[in-house]
Design a protein around this nucleic acid. Sequence first.
DNA 1: CCAAAAGTGTTCCGTCTACACCCATGG
DNA 2: CCATGGGTGTAGACGGAACACTTTTGG
Lengths: 225, 225
Amino acid sequence: MTDFYIEHPKLFVSVDCIVFGFEENKLKLLIGRRKMDPGRGEWSLYGGFVGQNESLTDAAKRVLFNLTGLDKIYMKQVGAFGAVDRDPGERVISVAYCALINVQDYDNRLLEKYGVEWVDINKLPRLYSDHNLMVKKAISLLRLHLSSEPLSFNLLPELFTLTQLQKVYEGILGEEIDKRNFRKRVKMMDFIEKTDEIDKVTSRRGAALYRFNKKAYLEDPTFKL
Amino acid sequence: MTDFYIEHPKLFVSVDCIVFGFEENKLKLLIGRRKMDPGRGEWSLYGGFVGQNESLTDAAKRVLFNLTGLDKIYMKQVGAFGAVDRDPGERVISVAYCALINVQDYDNRLLEKYGVEWVDINKLPRLYSDHNLMVKKAISLLRLHLSSEPLSFNLLPELFTLTQLQKVYEGILGEEIDKRNFRKRVKMMDFIEKTDEIDKVTSRRGAALYRFNKKAYLEDPTFKL
DNA sequence: CCAAAAGTGTTCCGTCTACACCCATGG
DNA sequence: CCATGGGTGTAGACGGAACACTTTTGG
């Protein structure tokens, strides 16, 4: 390949992943202690550098797969962060990606392997570099799109109760929702289907389990919840 | 500075600017013919490479200043574009920025100097590389934020008529708006102030000129239009 | 005197919000 | 039998959408 742009500088480019999960009826983030300099020991998002022949999304997928053992994760770009001194070590441009995973699919042995933990988003510590900023932006993005896109199901198992679904909404929005109004709205979405299964774990009475029918949704992708 | 990350590759990073203007009651984009290889002669956004000691936003500001002679332009990041072969010349990560300018402030002599033109966003040609994608995303972003942020005033002169304001909305949303409903909503925003000035250019009768009072807005930054 | 744009209110309908009680079950 | 979470409907308020005519003035 010819060097068309040889006179311009090249920079390190990394991706940082903001991994959301839903556990104990709370919205959580997968973060860990940095294992390298600079910033060794500080709380941090998990990231990695972008390869010469790797697209940004591929890099994000690779990093997410390493961290979680999962592929086909729902993922969305949050934005590029490029302050000159954002990384104390070297000049690095970082592109943040937000990921939503179902913690049931996550292998907990990886927590130890990577030294990461699920931390309540309302109890986040100070993070390395500009990672708090990234998280803040990711949450605004989630909030912005929550009511017009079927995001929430990515955080839940295949079968879920309406209370769980509601808690996901409350976790992301950071406010409580009226149960009756919420269920009324759910009923209008035909692709949120009641199954015959009953969940007896979280309540004595048992709660009906629902499923998000992706195929039905794609036939008429109108979402408002 | 120590080379902490020496083992990782470095990439070219550029910024591309999507410059919106409002002219002849239409939303337009400032684009031109590429003056360099690869892609010489193709329609393209205006961009530039990010320097080693320059933040992403500074790079975008610099490129915008070069192109328009204006600083303090309203600017928002659209996102990072990182497909491996997005640029036919070399591997380049590009961060797109959307800018809103008032064409009255723009020196038309620069059109020739840079070989750029104001093109109706509904009549855009095929653009270089993934620039059409960038534009599309920028427009979605504008639409998304239009009703909750005072974006539109950046496209208008200090003093503007309500019809002009409405045309900006229609241009961005791509649909017509009811005049009476629109004006009713404008009246509720106290920081859109009627002045004593009258515009006699666009109508025989003359239209009242309004002003966006930024200070008043900042005291109570609630926007809904 | 007419063309062209400015300006102005009301009614209706649908959507959102507030709100409280009974049910089923396991321990 | 009681504590715990699951499940259900209605009325009133509010906001958005539809809609047509009068005014002013330059040419």
